[in-house]
C-alpha cells in the first residue's frame, strides 16, 4: 500500500480483546493495512476465528487472561523475545455490567476495574520495558464516550473508562522521551455483542431512545477501528495524550 499514510507494513501490533467486536475488527483492519497482528484474549477458539479473517502472513494467536493474576510484564517480555519489539498496543478488552451502584456486588465492581483498568495499566507497564517496544511506538486504549458524559447504571464502567483517559494523558508525558505515544478512543455504542446485550437489558422503547441519542445512528466496529489505525499509523505521529471521540454525534 505504497503512498498510503496509514500503511502499517513492517509493524507488529498487539490487540487485546481480539476475539470479538471492536478488537476483532481492529485486528482485521490493521492486517489489511499491512501490520503483523498478535491477537490476544481468553478464548483460543474465537481468536483463531479472528486469525482466519486476517489478511497477510505472520499473525499470531496468543491466548492470555489479563485478569488471571499471571505476570503481564513477564508475558510481554517472553513474547517480544520471540517476535521482536512491538510497534503498537491496542487495549480493547473490556467488560460492562449494567447495574445501579447500590446493588452492584463488590466482586462485580472489582471485576470491571480489573478488566478495564488494571489490565491496561499492567499492559502499558509491560510494553514500556526495554526490548518490548520499538522506537516510535504507540498505545491506544479503548475508553468510552460514557467516560465523558456519564451513564446511569454504568457508574463503575464509566469510572474505569475515564481512568483510562487520565492514564493516557499521564503516560503520554512520562513516555514522550521514549517516543511512545499514548492515546484513547472514546466510542459510543456500536453494533455487535455489547449492543445486543443492551437490547436484552432495556425495553424496546428504551433501546430506541438509546439509538436516537446517536444522531448518525449506531456505529459499526469498523468506524472505531479506523480511528485506532489512524492513531497507530504515521498519521498519528504528532498526537499523544489525547482522546479521539468517535460517537456518531452522541456527545455533540
Amino acid at each position: 500500500m505504497a503512498g498510503n499514510p496509514m500503511d502499517l507494513t513492517g509493524s507488529t501490533v498487539l490487540v487485546t480483546g481480539a476475539s470479538s467486536g471492536i478488537g476483532r475488527e481492529t485486528a482485521v483492519l490493521l492486517s489489511l493495512l499491512g501490520a503483523r497482528v498478535v491477537l490476544t484474549g481468553r478464548n483460543q477458539g474465537r481468536l483463531e476465528e479472528t486469525a482466519a479473517s486476517l489478511s497477510g502472513q505472520g499473525h499470531r494467536v496468543e491466548p492470555f487472561d489479563l485478569t488471571g493474576g499471571e505476570d503481564i510484564s513477564n508475558w510481554l517480555r517472553t513474547l517480544a523475545a520471540q517476535i521482536g519489539p512491538l510497534n503498537g498496543l491496542v487495549h480493547s478488552a473490556g467488560m460492562q455490567i449494567t447495574v445501579p451502584l447500590r446493588v452492584m456486588r463488590p466482586q462485580a465492581i472489582e471485576d470491571v476495574l480489573k478488566t478495564n483498568l488494571l489490565s491496561a495499566i499492567m499492559l502499558a507497564r509491560g510494553f514500556c520495558q526495554k526490548g518490548c517496544h520499538a522506537a516510535d511506538s504507540s498505545i491506544v486504549f479503548l475508553s468510552s464516550v460514557s467516560a465523558l458524559t456519564g451513564q446511569p447504571a454504568l457508574s463503575v464502567y464509566c469510572a474505569s473508562k475515564a481512568a483510562l483517559i487520565g492514564l493516557a494523558k499521564s503516560l503520554a508525558l512520562e513516555w514522550a522521551s521514549l517516543r511512545i505515544r499514548v492515546n484513547c478512543i472514546a466510542p459510543a455504542l456500536v453494533r455487535g455483542e455489547m449492543a445486543e446485550q443492551f437490547r436484552e437489558e432495556l425495553s424496546p422503547e428504551q433501546f430506541r431512545e438509546m439509538e436516537k441519542l446517536h444522531p448518525l445512528g449506531l456505529g459499526h466496529p469498523r468506524d472505531v477501528a479506523n480511528a485506532v489505525a489512524f492513531l497507530l499509523a504515521d498519521t498519528g505521529r504528532w498526537i499523544t495524550g489525547t482522546t479521539l471521540v468517535v460517537d456518531g454525534g452522541y456527545s455533540a
Binding site: V99, P100, R102, A153, E201
Partner: peptide, 14 residues
C-alpha cells in the same frame, strides 16, 4: 422504575 428493572436483571443474573 427503570433503574430497579436493571437492578432486577442483575439480581437474577447473580
Amino acid at each position: 422504575n427503570s433503574m430497579a428493572v436493571i437492578g432486577f436483571i442483575a439480581m437474577a443474573d447473580t
